[in-house]
């Protein structure tokens, strides 16, 4: 759908604007300028407030779009339930014909995706021993669209680890040996990336990517 909008956006816009022009022309032709006063004033008010609202909500709409994609289609393996992570075994090119969101990625990483929600209680993120292999798990805020936290080679190193994900006000107990990450708006889009050197390496990378998992505490 996004592809179609991108491809035919200009044409569709021109057609819609032409229809609007025709509607206004018909009204003016039938009953003079008085016929469009209410239409025009409504349009201006909706235009001004609508523009502000759209800009304000744009990050939410975008991140929410990914949430819906994960919940409905997943990344090639069917819907991904909330608080589970799915690792895609396929490369971006292999997903090309499917129109999957994976196809916007690159072949050099395996993607892991899921939606985190800690409103009902904290979650644990487990990552396996990655050693020198590059990986990252990006936490994207659903309200601002900012990446508020990272787990991975750069942020936390290549060792295995468990991360305690909770709402900022959480004061309960934390399992021993876990690192705490506060989730500002109690939910987040998680995107994991695990480096794949070549096709021969894909299996090994996938075995590791699958071990990046969420679990209830």
């Amino acid at each position: 759908m996004n592809r179609l909008i991108l491809k035919y956006g200009t044409v569709v816009t021109v057609v819609i604007l032409a229809i609007f022009a025709w509607v206004i022309y018909r009204r003016v032709a039938d009953g003079g300028v008085a016929e469009i006063v209410l239409l025009a004033s409504t349009a201006v008010v909706v235009w001004v407030f609508g523009s502000f609202a759209l800009i304000y909500f744009w990050p939410r709409i975008t991140v929410g779009g990914f949430k819906r994609i994960f919940a409905r289609r997943g990344l090639g393996g069917g819907p991904i339930p909330v608080n589970t992570l799915y690792a895609s075994p396929d490369s971006a090119t292999a997903s090309a014909s499917s129109g999957s969101v994976i196809a916007t990625g690159t072949d050099d990483v395996l993607y892991v995706g899921g939606w985190l929600d800690v409103a009902a209680g904290p979650q644990l993120l487990h990552v396996p021993e990655m050693g020198e292999r590059y990986y990252s798990v990006q936490f994207t805020d659903p309200v601002t669209g900012a990446n508020f936290a990272y787990v991975g080679s750069r942020a936390t190193g290549g060792a295995a680890g468990d991360f305690f994900l909770c709402e900022p006000g959480y004061e309960g107990a934390m399992p021993h040996g876990t690192s705490r990450i506060d989730v500002p708006h109690r939910s987040a889009l998680l995107i994991g990336r695990v480096f794949v050197a070549d096709d021969d390496d894909r299996e090994a990378a996938y075995a590791l990517a699958k071990q990046i998992q969420l679990a209830a505490v």
Partner: peptide, 17 residues
Amino acid sequence: GVVQGVIMGLTFAYLTT
């Protein structure tokens, strides 16, 4: 024309955004 105005306003809002 209120309905048409809302439709046009939303379209313009999207394009402006």
